[in-house]
Amino acid sequence: MRTRSRRRLAAGAAVYSSIVLTTWLAAGILLLLVGYLVFRGLGPLAKVIKYGVFANSGSALLPIWFRTLYLMAAAALLALPLAMGTGIYLSEYARESRLNAWILGAIDGLAKMPPIIYGLLGWGALAPRLGEGKTALIVLLASAIWLLPQLSTMTYAALQDVPGSFRRDSLALGASRWQTAWRVLIPYARRTLAAKVLEGMARVGGEAAPVIMIAAAWPSSYGQPPTTLPYHLYSSLVGSVGPAASHHFGTALLLILTSICLQGAAVQLRRIDNDLTGSVRDWERGRW
């Protein structure tokens, strides 16, 4: 009896140790990667920030970074109103039905599509209509369309996550569904929504596929698509720019720092929201 119990304890300890070890291993690999990038890229990045260009290639990184930030923000601003409208409709107006479940599933499917498909959309559907000299606009629209289903499902999920008592109490006061969504649900979910928008922006900023797709199939006479950080990294590695390796590491470090900042802000926002939601849920469950 005692032996069996000791064996069980030993097995439990072994499982626990292996889980802890795996976690540390994963964190270690990630830290190693970031550390390596910092080690190789910090020097060149510091210099480019100081002098404006990479010393060995003459490439200016900061304008590319600003262009990336602009693309991220503009795509989010373009997609957000429509995405919020879709999310509010699906969450607050649409009745439970097979059709609406199908619509939600379809939007979710669109949100999970590989971004290169949206590049294809930009090349195939937008480029012929918008024509010459509109490469930046095409990339922006393709990115906004890519973000649209993601932000729609995020808005829907954020509204569904608002404690039901707020919706109920607002409607009981004679507020319409729209007033309830606009004045109570969205203000309550604003931090979650903002966090999701930041995550979406990080995804747009870090994605080279739509730009590559448009650049690859674009007649050179129409001009090059706007150079964003990931596209710059890609083209400098495979294309004709050919700077030294330090250039790549500096670019990659700036890209990863931008992404970490956005994701970090998103995590902080969501943490505040979770604290608030938790306290309301405790009250709803009678655990106050």
């Binding site: 008592s165 109490d169 607002s170 006061l173 004045r183 109570v184 203000p187 009678g286």
Partner: peptide, 29 residues
């Protein structure tokens, strides 16, 4: 109808707003 017949549901919870804005919510809408 809901303005004329008010319901205080079981376990009501204030909105995450100020005390003033909670009470002023209904008149504002």
């Amino acid at each position: 109808v809901r303005r004329r017949v008010g319901l205080i549901a079981r376990h009501p919870y204030p909105f995450p707003k100020s005390i003033f804005d909670n009470v002023a919510y209904g008149p504002r809408v």
